[in-house]
Write a protein that binds this DNA or RNA. Structure first.
Length: 276
DNA sequence: ATCACGACCTGGAGGC
DNA sequence: TGCCTCCAGGTCGTGA
């Protein structure tokens, strides 16, 4: 579900939680990704009695800082939600972490498929965490340009689509925005990265930045599960150009959009104007 | 090292 | 109605 624009939307809408003091931490006891149990003791130790001081994002990871030495690291996987509720609100199914704050609210993490991740990291040393250590450039907070992409494309033979979704290249692009960015840059998802040229790489960098920025401006893409920290859906699904639009006319040339599968993932593109 | 694939898990949609 | 199959925004482990 959540790619960079959705995670950033959660970060922005979670801001009312800044300054809240965490009084207690509850967990469901169910494991998340890779069958890893939630680190209950570490969560309680790191969070109980602490004030939330900052909300950060790196790629698709959220970092919730406290006035203590440790931070909460959250990845939403496919179906994860991080929301602020009133303490009395009914819990939605598959709630796995609840942080009760001093003002009568709760910050809840729910995740039906349990592909997400909730961990404790030492503030300042986040990048040493294996999940974050491998991440490439974040296109919202760092300068993504053609030169960077061209450099990272050297001696590789993967498809452009796989290249864009590789989190060690660009952190935050997922299956929706890979298709969208490739359409914007008029490049074929099947094209090999070693065929990138300077101008094509520049177009691709711009396509990535633009597709992410537009989606963020609309509060993210809600296809089925995504909501922000207040429970509101984003409106970007209505503005997707190719994703999930097989058979509809290409906005540039009216050719029907095609669906194919690359590395097991649905891929949408215009077979006529994305030829390079 | 790089790449493609299947596995992980639940729920919703569509076919019969 | 029920049962079946397929599909879903991510990441990781495996084997070529």
């Amino acid at each position: 579900m959540p790619e960079l624009p959705e995670v950033e939307t959660v970060r922005l809408t979670l801001k009312p939680a800044l300054g809240a003091i965490i009084q207690s931490v509850w967990t469901s006891g169910q494991p998340l990704r890779l069958n890893r149990p939630l680190p209950v003791a570490a969560l309680r130790r790191a969070l109980t009695g602490r004030t939330i001081t900052a909300l950060r994002r790196i790629g698709k990871y959220l970092i919730i800082d406290t006035d203590g030495p440790r931070s909460l690291l959250v990845h939403l996987g496919m179906t994860g939600r991080l929301r602020v509720h009133k303490a009395g609100d009914p819990r939605e199914p598959h709630t796995h972490v609840v942080m009760t704050t001093g003002d009568g609210r709760e910050i809840r993490y729910s995740d039906p498929r349990r592909f997400g991740q909730v961990e404790v990291v030492r503030r300042g040393a986040e990048r040493e965490h294996p999940s974050l250590a491998v991440l490439g450039l974040d296109p919202l907070t760092e300068k993504l340009d053609g030169k960077y992409l061209l450099d990272r494309a050297r001696r590789r033979s993967a498809s452009l689509k796989a290249f864009l979704m590789d989190q060690s290249v660009v952190a935050g692009v997922g299956n929706i925005y890979a298709s969208e960015a490739l359409w914007r840059s008029k490049l074929s998802p099947n094209s090999r990265v070693d065929r990138l040229t300077g101008p094509r790489a520049t177009a691709l960098a711009r396509g990535v930045r633009d597709s992410l920025r537009h989606a963020l401006a609309r509060g993210g893409t809600s296809l089925r599960d995504f909501v922000d920290a207040h429970g509101a859906e984003g409106s970007n699904a209505d503005y997707l150009i190719v994703y999930d639009r097989a058979g509809e006319p290409c906005r540039r040339c009216r050719t029907p959009i095609q669906r194919s599968v690359i590395q097991g993932r649905a891929t949408y593109f215009c077979p006529s104007c994305q030829i390079l």
